[in-house]
């Protein structure tokens, strides 16, 4: 799926360009510009990063470096909610792999993908430091620990589904 082919994309590019043009300092504001672009487009695909690089006249590798450094930037489309599974050693030992399979099954996607209805994206993380609660999943930064049963997973996800 590609959000770039959305008819509103051209408008987004124009709006982004106008925003960049309005800035006094451009190159110095790369992080701000990337934030603005991510708000607008939802994520920062290669093509958009290249556009920004060319607009600011800086090497695309530098934009890519910055985007990859900060965890709040994403190069893939994200669902409305971001679910993460901790794959650190402690979680792994206590069944993170099984938890991952269960979440994937319930969402109907693989890790790294986004659900059909755009509600969830699913990723894995290295240790998040909540080893005492292993195995751990997170949704939008909120930690849910000691999740073992399919029903527990269902209850967590249910919280984020639109009611009714």
């Amino acid at each position: 799926m590609s959000m770039c082919d959305n008819p509103s994309t051209d408008d987004h590019y124009h709006q982004l360009d106008r925003y960049i043009d309005s800035l006094h300092y451009k190159k110095e504001n790369l992080i701000g510009i990337l934030h603005y672009a991510q708000e607008l487009f939802g994520f920062l695909p290669d093509k958009l990063q290249l556009h920004i690089a060319q607009k600011l006249d800086i090497p695309a590798a530098k934009v890519y470096g910055v985007v990859s450094f900060y965890s709040f930037f994403t190069m893939k489309p994200r669902g409305k909610h971001t679910a993460n599974i901790c794959m650190g050693t402690a979680c792994y030992v206590r069944g993170a792999e099984k938890l991952k399979e269960e979440i994937e099954k319930q969402m109907g996607i693989k890790t790294g993908q986004i659900t059909e209805d755009n509600l969830f994206s699913l990723d894995s993380l290295r240790c998040i430091g909540a080893c005492g609660l292993a195995p751990v999943m997170m949704v939008d930064g909120k930690v849910y620990g000691r999740i073992h049963e399919p029903e527990e997973v269902r209850q967590v996800l249910e919280k984020y589904r639109p009611q009714g």
């Binding site: 590798a61 890519y64 990859s68 450094f69």
Partner: peptide, 9 residues
């Protein structure tokens, strides 16, 4: 030329 960048953290 700016070909390379450190990527990731």
């Amino acid at each position: 030329v700016g070909v390379y960048s450190a990527v990731g953290r």
